[in-house]
Simulated assay, not measured.
Amino acid sequence: MFRSVRAVLFDLDGTLIDSAPDLGAAADRMRQLRGMASLPLNRYRPMTGSGARGMLQVAFGITPAHADYGSLKEEFFTHYTECLLQRTQPFLEVQQLVEVLRERGLAWGVVTNKSERFTLPITRAMPLFSTAAAIVSGDTTPHAKPHPAPLLEAARRMSVSPAECVYVGDDERDIVAGRAAGMRTVAARYGYLGAGADVAAWGANAEVTSPLELLNFLEVA
């Protein structure tokens, strides 16, 4: 049980929303335009948490060290912009979780490594985020996760101390960032996780297999 909690912060992709279908579609569109066979979503989904890097790795087997990575990344961003909200939806139970948090008097917010050019259109279009007290993107501060700066900025915007926050995410960098910020951390096992992820080794204070499980760990301040 986490005591004296006043706010809950969440990662975005893989924690609050399932954006894998749109991210995967953007990368797969690039394959199709090159006459390559389409890949099934289950090939893209485990790498969704890595954003463009993960999608291009699946689609073309390249890493950021590849000479064409920069141009391919920008092409990917163009295609993704065109389909941001075609298939993206909140995970099951997320809407209910947010409603219960508000009923308990807890503030909530988002800290994601997704850049503002994508985060803001998504969160402005989806009703889920209308009650979020803070939305911090990967380029809102000079540093992205696993640096604690974005989480500390979210706490500042919500007028709560980091020690009064819980941070929930589906990637090891989320847990690293949360711990560095002095927050309690929860690993979302229902998220993308990444290939071969050893969640138990991340060092989170708790793990959940569904969004509503989080409520079992929260004690209101």
Rank of each mutant, 00 (worst) to 15 (best):
G51Y: 02
A200M: 08
E207D: 00
E213D: 13
D68S: 14
A200C: 06
G49M: 08
D139N: 13
M183I: 06
L56W: 08
R124C: 10
P211L: 01
R157V: 09
V8E: 07
P121N: 12
F76S: 06
R102S: 15
R157G: 14
R179S: 14
L120M: 14
L85I: 09
L23E: 04
V166I: 12
Q32D: 14
S19F: 05
A37S: 15
R102Q: 15
A200R: 10
G35K: 06
Q86R: 15
A177D: 08
Y190H: 02
L128F: 02
Y44C: 14
R104C: 07
A37E: 15
L97Y: 04
R157F: 09
V110K: 03
A154M: 07
P40L: 05
F77S: 08
T15P: 08
T63D: 10
S50V: 00
G70V: 11
G35Q: 02
Y44E: 11
V176N: 03
S210G: 11
T63V: 07
V111E: 10
V5F: 01
N216E: 15
A201E: 06
A154S: 10
H143Q: 13
R124D: 14
T185Q: 06
S130H: 07
D139H: 03
E153D: 12
P142L: 10
G54L: 09
S210K: 12
G138N: 07
T88Q: 04
L101E: 07
E207W: 07
Y69A: 09
V208W: 08
S38N: 05
A201T: 00
R157E: 12
A201M: 02
A125S: 14
P150V: 04
A7N: 01
L33N: 09
F10R: 08
Q57E: 13
Y190C: 03
A221H: 13
A107M: 12
A187L: 02
Y190N: 01
S50M: 14
P127T: 02
S4R: 14
R102D: 13
L97E: 08
T123M: 05
V166N: 07
P127I: 07
T88R: 08
A221D: 13
D18L: 00
M47L: 14
G138R: 00
E116L: 10
E116R: 13
T141A: 13
R102T: 15
D174T: 10
V186P: 00
L33E: 14
R184S: 00
F129Y: 07
F10G: 09
P148R: 04
Q96E: 15
L214Q: 03
Y192W: 04
I135C: 11
V168L: 03
R156G: 13
